[in-house]
Design a protein around this nucleic acid. Structure first.
Lengths: 245, 245
DNA sequence: CGAGCGATTGAACGCTCTCAAAGTGAGTGG
DNA sequence: CCACTCACTTTGAGAGCGTTCAATCGCTCG
């Protein structure tokens, strides 16, 4: 996956308009929801809006963490690798999610686009300074981190204790619920990621993911549609098979 | 596991001394590290110090989250359950760790003591108010949550992609490193939790945990000592078998 | 000394993985 | 328009790791 040059924003023109954040359609989902117009203007001053093609690396595990990002469109995956190449995807990020939290000044995971994406990039120094000025923002970020933490714990339950079928059903439900939260229709579910990505997210192999989809399809619980969409035929059945979640 | 009555602090005398936090030996590890003497005094005013016996519930998943806690001694486990009783332990907390982050005003997991513990209890309303006053504290809490998040991602990698032996070795190393960070000796490692707890933390069964310990023992990599201690005979071997982490 | 709980060990099963091959679809160039 | 490539997905067969079920051991406590 070729890394993309993030230092040169592509649509800088739009980003440096008087108050692009004020008009941001996804603001309510992000860190920026907490801010008033003046604060948004200050935020807009330090941010770059960047487009990233599908399957490009935004940053890599271990790199100096000198920026925070916010996804404004598209899907991003975060992952960690073992020395022998085994991979665990720790999360899929969508509109409104942020990434770039650091430990010891360096990124703890690699971030790669699944689809083409728009992201807002905040230099860490400047955002840190701004957080000191706007405690509301710090609070919002803390609250978002808390939610991430809760989601991470749900994922641990899934990885450690659920069967393949339960994992797939939980995954579909999560995608459905996240779409709904973003004002998209919750069914059919748009599933932009590959079988390999799904497998590495759920702690399975691509073969098992594929077989499980086939089983669900055969059982009439789902059907696959054009354009990477999955129609959940019986939401209750899927919910039961996910064992609550 | 009988719940303990947390409304009635047991050693209130100590907690309401002029400035108990100032003398707190584990302060550098906790949220409180960021505060100056005056702020510590304010914090001491709203906190209760509580002792909890081993194997008691501090709070349960779903309960109204009206307090934040800080572990000052002992070991606490956090877990989530599936409807059929399968359990995933999402973390073991030790001196300096905090618990009680909420989503939708209610706890996302159950917290239960492994050993007898001392915890500081902060009513949520009062701590929220204090955070507004002391941004330093908010920042510290955010930074601790970030670290938790990174740890959660490491755990996902472990649960999704590591073998039983790698899981056990990673677990022992984690305990060793956390002990070292707290100024205890890193070897032998004190392992206060049961095989069942270890299993539910690593996504295994008690039998597999037991068998794996036996294998490591037979291979000469570890040996079991009195008082729930594990001597790591060859740290490098264990490290290699953990596949980095 | 017996009860009871946790840890260990054994044997057999099964879910998921591994290895392998065939199918599908988008993109390319003749 | 069609063959070709390449990547991804699906399907099949067999193996293995960890589980399940069961028995034994060892320690603590009454």
């Amino acid at each position: 996956m070729p890394p993309v040059d993030l230092s040169r924003p592509r649509d800088n023109a739009a980003a440096t308009d008087m108050n692009p954040c004020g008009a941001c359609p996804v603001r309510s989902l992000t860190v920026c929801a907490a801010l008033d117009p003046e604060e948004l203007r200050r935020l807009a001053e330090i941010l770059q809006t960047i487009r990233v093609e599908a399957n490009h690396t935004i940053f890599s595990e271990g790199e100096a963490a000198d920026a925070l990002y916010n996804v404004t469109s598209g899907t991003v995956k975060l992952y960690k690798l073992l020395p022998d190449g085994r991979r665990q995807i720790t999360g899929f990020l969508m509109t409104g999610d942020f990434l770039g939290l650091a430990v010891n000044e360096s990124y703890a995971y690699t971030a790669e686009t699944v689809t083409s994406c728009s992201v807002c990039k905040f230099p860490r120094r400047k955002i840190d300074a701004l957080m000191d000025e706007f405690p509301k923002m710090q609070r919002r970020l803390f609250s978002m981190a808390s939610n991430e933490l809760a989601a991470a714990q749900d994922q641990m339950l899934l990885l450690g204790r659920k069967t393949a079928k339960e994992k797939i059903c939980s995954f579909l439900l999560m995608l459905s619920q996240r779409a709904a939260r973003r004002g998209h229709k919750e069914n059919p579910v748009y599933v932009p990621m590959s079988r390999a990505d799904i497998a590495d997210y759920l702690g399975l192999t691509t073969e098992t993911v594929s077989r499980t989809f086939t089983q669900l399809k055969t059982a009439g619980a789902i059907s696959l549609q054009e354009g990477n969409k999955v129609l959940i035929a019986d939401m209750d059945t899927i919910y039961d098979m996910a064992e609550g979640c």
